[in-house]
Design a protein around this nucleic acid. Structure first.
Lengths: 213, 213
DNA sequence: TAGATTGTTAATCGATTAACAATC
DNA sequence: TAGATTGTTAATCGATTAACAATC
């Protein structure tokens, strides 16, 4: 597959996602038009960046008014398939996994948690929000039967790679990795990492810098 | 304050944090030496990037052996103050906030959750792990009395900015923002964002790209 | 010594910003 | 119309990679 017009840089993708969140907010407030400058101010960017980013979508603004918030929202929803209830499984029903199941924002943003599983026999069979915790042994069957697209890895670092391998074998389409482990085999299946500890350390460094040395 | 030698680009900082995690792992496994190439393979980078990054620290490798894992670990621990128990408060004792309190990795990585608070009167006074949930009304006193450095924002988007303002007023040194809201007043206090929904959307885009279209 | 690996300068690549013409 | 705002090309900035000398 050749490099397509759909090949958008990652930083742009992440900003497009933030534009979607902002459009949802502005639409709810009945603001019908927004300028690139206002978007920029809301999100801590420059107006040129915003206009450059929007060029990647087939969505154009209007002369002196700016962008139609409803139209841009719809375009971004389609772009991110945010109207489709992308199915996901959470592996690891510890505190973090449990919190994610209950997290309502996922559903409103187009993600549906269809299943949870864990290795701990003591919690298998118990309820976690609206779901029943299943055994990680059955992980592959669960993914296949429910045609789950996204695997969310919320297990300790030692188990992360093995879980990833199983999910990939079962035919998962992509992985969100909440563990600090770097997952191999990115070639076959895309992986996006959320590294909370690294974010905290980045913060510690920035604090040091601003408070002098 | 002029631009210092301590002015390290953010991508480098985040990788340095990952090197620390890797060194902790290698030390536990009693591997005393590691080459830049091995580090690169572990973390999905190139060996040149690793060597360039380590140049920012005052830590040099050895000819044909590579880097001393214990020494590098110590250097990175000092660099990130990871031996100091950086104090933090979690604002928002919902599912996510509760999960973070229980998360043991924070403590092993040098972060100590000293307090939690929430606005919901029904959960104020209840236990959350080893802590008692306090009222957000008392937030400023709690931060001042315990000299808390880091504020972790785990409230819904609508409350995020207000909570941030209070924390900054109380003299917090830095903020970790888990809400999707963009927080203003970055000039005074550094803010690092963890955007889980944006990460999921990034994943959806990458899945689309790899599965064709 | 020979070979592997570090350290460093220069080149490349990619993303952001500047400048300005086009448009409503 | 005049003014504000978009759209786009070119310039700048910063981060990664390539090349290779230095070192153990």
């Amino acid at each position: 597959m050749a490099k397509k017009a759909t090949d958008i840089p990652t930083p742009v993708i992440r900003r497009l996602s933030r534009y979607l969140a902002l459009m949802q907010y502005l639409c709810k407030k009945n603001m019908n038009w927004v300028s690139s400058q206002k978007v920029a101010r809301h999100l801590g960017l420059t107006s040129v960046t915003v206009r450059q980013d929007l060029k990647y979508l087939d969505f154009t603004g209007v002369g002196k008014r700016g962008y139609d918030t409803t139209g841009l929202k719809s375009t971004l929803i389609k772009f991110f398939s945010a109207d489709i209830d992308n199915s996901a499984i959470i592996v690891g029903a510890g505190h973090l996994g449990q919190a994610l199941i209950q997290h309502k924002e996922f559903l409103t943003q187009g993600f549906k948690i269809c299943a949870v599983c864990d290795v701990n026999p003591e919690i298998i069979g118990t309820k976690a929000g609206p779901l029943v915790v299943q055994s990680t042994d059955d992980l592959q069957d669960i993914v296949r039967e429910n045609k789950i697209q996204i695997g969310i890895i919320a297990v300790p670092r030692e188990e992360a790679q093995q879980v990833a391998d199983q999910l990939i074998l079962a035919g998962i389409n992509g992985l969100l990795n909440l563990s600090p482990e770097h997952l191999a085999s990115r070639r076959t299946v895309p992986v996006v990492d959320v590294r909370m500890i690294d974010s905290l350390r980045e913060l510690v460094y920035k604090i040091k810098k601003t408070t002098g040395l």
